[in-house]
Design a protein around this nucleic acid. Sequence first.
DNA 1: AATATTTGGTATTTATAAGTATCAACTTTA
DNA 2: TAAAGTTGATACTTATAAATACCAAATATT
Lengths: 154, 154
Amino acid sequence: MRSEIIQNQDTPLYSISTAAKMLGISVHTVRMYERAGLILPFQKESSHRLYSQSDIERLKCIRRAINEDKISIAGIQRIQALIPCWEIVNCSQQDREHCDAFNNHAYACWMYNHKKNICENLDCKSCQVYKEFYDCAKIKNRIIGITEKYESTL
Amino acid sequence: MRSEIIQNQDTPLYSISTAAKMLGISVHTVRMYERAGLILPFQKESSHRLYSQSDIERLKCIRRAINEDKISIAGIQRIQALIPCWEIVNCSQQDREHCDAFNNHAYACWMYNHKKNICENLDCKSCQVYKEFYDCAKIKNRIIGITEKYESTL
DNA sequence: AATATTTGGTATTTATAAGTATCAACTTTA
DNA sequence: TAAAGTTGATACTTATAAATACCAAATATT
């Protein structure tokens, strides 16, 4: 078996213009979504952005939400702010007290600074919270999961 | 102590034109919010709508979400669809299986039919799910509440 | 070294959601 | 029973979010 570069859904492959072309939108629109915290791109050392296949899928999902479901960008931000990140990363009571994400509800956790808590040394881009829960169905199912977890202890 | 008509925040008091005037919007806009499921008015036997002080506050909250926070109506619907109603009304596993609200994520529970479950004979207008959880902060705090409830059993 | 691309801005356009106007039929109330 | 208000529906207007176009400076590619 010869040595190969491992490629998967998370491998940074596409430049911003390639990504934009794949989605049929302008480069600026992609950056607009980034500014809004809907997507975190890979940054090369050089400051140029790169996107993986997962990023493309995420962007497609964002487009559907905006164009088909008529949810505004601000609305998507609020929805993502409801992801129960504290439960997913299982942070402590003390972590929560100092966490801006836990104590606010306007943006997803990856939009806040995480100093002095469990997330401090973690990369949001590779965190389950960011990677897995970007749409309504997945977020709702996760909330359901919490209640089921609770009920199973009764 | 003489007999008085009990008035509270939930007493139906205002006609639709009075409510619209109080909010500085048109009658039609109020009905638009109703169509979207953001507000459930009282209906007199006569089919004319009436609004309580709580309804006015709720409408003010909706207005802030739309005008200040820039969340679209479709966005508000999706956010309200994340209210963990099943946990609040504590419905059974069987109730959940047959519940359109539980099994979807596009609208709040009070927008669906509740046949053959615990909600069947309840009035959504006076249900805690509808009355208490119409904004992001309250919804998020409720989700937090579930996790804390779970953690307290450990 | 020359060409192509990306960056982060601002200014502008466009698409459309949110809101208004108007309507005839119906209901309430005075 | 006349006047005022409500209903639901359609057509129209407006406000603005989303997207595009453009820019000069920086970076990457050949």
